[in-house]
Simulated scan of single mutants.
Amino acid sequence: MFPSFAASSAVRAGQAHAPVGFFYASPENILFSPAYCVNGKTGRMTGKPKPDSTHPEWHEAMEALVRALDLPDRYDRVIRELVIPGLGRVFMRFWIAQDLIDPDFMADPEDDADEPQWYQIGDWPQRAGTPDGTPQFKWNRRTSLYFRWYGQHVMHVVDWLIYADRIGAPWLQNLDGYGRPKKLLKCMDLQQLVHEADKGLRYRARNYDPGGVSMEALPALTDCDEVEVADLGVGYVLVRLQTPHALLVEGGRMHHCIGHGSYDNYLFNPNYQFLSVRDPDGQPVATLEIAAGVVLQFRGPGNVDPSRAVVELLSAYASESKWLCYESAAAGGYLVYGFDSIEDVGTVVIDDMLAGDDLLPARP
């Protein structure tokens, strides 16, 4: 599912500080500075730092990113040929720029308070020799933060790449000498990728055509496809989507990406739920993705944030069900799930700390 980039709560006029990030002036002016940080140490490089396989931790960074996306195996080629040259490259640019400012700590780019939350993003020398002291742990942590701040936009771009691959978009044939699409290479940050995704998905949003089949031609939903799980009052109900066909129809009616197929595999995971809030006329007004009691996504029609009326209407049921991250998801937050673990009791653990807690230590 994906939101409108312009609707992001992270875009704030009059920001008192200008943290590194694509919502503000991109730090390309420092990205190509000869000063470069590797493993928390500032040194001089004879060449420009590049967001590609020449980076000493490129492999760890891309592994963390791909695991966080958690796409089915059938998208391996999309990951290799589109996600890595596009998202992987701008993801690395983001962190290279941050490393030039401070490789160890970073302020929350969406926190406009006078004293914003700080997060540890560098190596943990005090944990050297343990799994927490490895570059992979550092990049898992960085990826988790990146998805917390920009996850909805990342998944919007992924939806576009999957869709473009499925329909054989003409721009896929315009390649550079290394076989990479030039459309992706011209994007220098996530904002530019989102802009391209908005354009690429605009037609699909107006004329939802999953797999070449019109919505009118799809079979009607049955009791096997969806089941009511709660009466929310004032004529609204909560419905669980149980089949790929149910996701397909939900995506078509709501104009978001739940129906393009990448979520189908999760229907068979007992820890996952896909829910739809229906109005008195039976029309969907919000869709939720929930894993082990954590609300990963909560989107309204066209992937905007759900209305406050819907959020408040569902809040009692969410509290009764002990859902985590409900308000955050309603405000457009996205919880990375690729390298989280789910304990037998259903507790979600992220980077060895409970979801909902302060995941990382504050800046000293």
Rank of each mutant, 00 (worst) to 15 (best):
V336Q: 14
R363Q: 10
D189A: 11
A6D: 09
V311P: 07
P19C: 01
M62V: 10
R74H: 14
P131E: 08
V90E: 08
D340F: 01
K322L: 10
D279F: 03
N29I: 11
T46L: 15
Y163V: 08
P56M: 05
T143E: 02
H256G: 00
P244R: 07
P219W: 00
I121S: 06
A97K: 11
D165G: 00
A164T: 01
V349Q: 04
K186S: 14
F298M: 12
K322Q: 14
G47R: 02
P72H: 04
S26W: 15
V285M: 07
Y337F: 15
P244C: 03
S53N: 03
G179L: 06
D159C: 03
H153K: 05
R12C: 00
D76P: 03
S321N: 10
M215L: 14
L247K: 01
G43Q: 13
I96V: 11
W323S: 04
A10E: 09
K186E: 13
L185N: 00
M215G: 11
H55R: 06
V20W: 00
E81N: 14
L172A: 01
R141Q: 09
Q15G: 10
G282S: 06
L185T: 08
S144M: 04
V239K: 12
Y337C: 13
D209Y: 08
P244I: 10
E63Y: 04
V349A: 01
I290F: 00
V304N: 07
P56V: 09
N29F: 13
E327D: 15
D223R: 05
Y236P: 06
A61E: 10
D189K: 04
S276F: 02
A355P: 06
R141D: 07
Y263P: 01
A169P: 00
A318T: 02
V234H: 12
V277R: 00
H195N: 08
V249N: 06
G122M: 12
I79G: 04
W124A: 15
K186W: 03
V294H: 03
L248I: 02
D76G: 12
R240G: 05
M45T: 13
G300T: 08
Y326K: 13
V154H: 00
I350P: 06
M62D: 05
C325V: 14
A197Y: 00
F105L: 12
G338M: 03
L275T: 01
Y178N: 12
E63C: 14
E343K: 06
E289R: 04
A355C: 10
V90I: 10
A316V: 15
S9G: 15
